[in-house]
């Protein structure tokens, strides 16, 4: 999902906890797990295993980076939205993504990592973010497809995260999920308008679905047999469902929506299994996925470059805010003195 980088087997972030050395730690470890098992929330100042903290820092920060980078593919269309109605919706959506990034950075900071460190990791290219945001948005229909599919997949993943064992993350996710629903609906409505429009508009919608379908399925991360750390993250209740389970739910929910639009999902192997009630689908091209995670996707370089430029271009604003705050403080002191 937004944190697929965590699942990669080469990932160093979520190694098993270091070997326990003292009885005290074993006792703390046991008490921690008992609290998690009892569905209690873990709060920032509570004792937690180092591996739990490290996994959360990586997961929450990757999630935050994904929200921030996720503003770029859509921001591409803000100035060219076809109507004012679509434009205000898109602006509000992109602003929401920025807000989601902030909620998540704040949640990560409660684990003892600084905002500067996190932003630095994104700008240096060291941090990972969701593979999905490394695809281009060449047509207006891409905005519909992103809202419908990408935000739809995100909701599938994020709703269970509202019950994550770490309190600040769970609470951030509650706010985020409340807002994501608007994102998905505006996307589907946009697709519907195109699908019911001129033949050319419908072709454009179909083309967007063709390009976004498989990348959306990849958002859920590697299949379960390839996914590292799943068992530990389930035990810690950071993760509630496996990648494949969530992917299946997404397919089951989305296929009928595509049918309603009169669009065809680009998978010749897709079929409903009447016995299980689930859709079966073709094999995912994991080579493409792995290449994107390695930084070789169509837009990886462009995205990081855009973030760096935004950071550099915003330097004067940050400096001015600091100077203004300092001046205001001086004036207040003088007045008091």
């Amino acid at each position: 999902m937004y944190t697929q980088g965590l699942d990669a087997k080469t990932d160093q972030g979520a190694q098993p906890s270091p070997r326990l050395v003292t009885d005290d730690e074993i006792r703390l470890q046991g008490r921690f797990q008992a609290r998690v098992d009892a569905e209690e929330k873990i709060e920032p100042r509570d004792w937690m295993p180092e591996g739990y903290r490290r996994t959360l820092v990586r997961q929450i920060s990757q999630h935050a980076h994904s929200e921030i980078v996720g503003m770029l593919p859509e921001g591409n269309w803000v100035t060219r939205a076809p109507t004012l109605r679509r434009k205000v919706a898109l602006l509000a959506k992109v602003q929401d993504e920025g807000g989601h990034g902030l909620y998540l950075y704040s949640a990560a900071e409660t684990l003892g990592v600084s905002r500067d460190e996190l932003v630095g990791q994104l700008l240096s290219g060291k941090a990972k973010y969701s593979s999905i945001f490394n695809y281009p948005t060449p047509t207006w229909a891409d905005i519909g497809a992103i809202g419908w599919l990408v935000d739809g997949a995100a909701i599938m993943n994020q709703v269970p995260l509202c019950r994550c064992s770490y309190g600040p993350y769970a609470r951030a996710m509650v706010r985020i999920c409340r807002e994501e629903s608007f994102h998905q609906r505006q996307g589907y409505e946009l697709m519907l308008a195109l699908a019911q429009g001129t033949p050319e508009q419908k072709r454009m919608a179909q083309d967007a679905l063709n390009r976004w379908w498989w990348p959306s399925l990849m958002m859920f991360g590697p299949s379960d047999d390839q996914s590292a750390h799943s068992a530990q993250n389930m035990a810690w209740k950071i993760k509630r469902f496996s990648n494949d389970e969530l992917r299946q739910r997404f397919v089951d929910a989305t296929v009928p929506q595509a049918e309603f639009l009169g669009l065809t999902i680009p998978d010749p192997e897709l079929r409903l299994n009447a016995e299980t009630g689930h859709y079966e689908f073709g094999a995912i091209d994991w080579t493409e996925f792995n290449e994107i995670l390695k930084g070789n996707g169509p837009c990886n370089r462009e995205r990081i470059e855009a973030r760096r430029q935004a950071w550099d271009d915003g330097a004067w604003v940050r400096d001015a805010a600091s100077a203004h705050a300092a001046k205001r403080k001086q004036r207040a002191l003088k007045k008091a003195g």
Binding site: L102, Y103, S106, E109, R115, R171, A172, R175, A321, S322, H324, A325, R328, K329
Partner: peptide
Amino acid sequence: HVGSLHAADAHM
């Protein structure tokens, strides 16, 4: 309480 943020001062 709803969350937190960094700012240069209380106004911001």
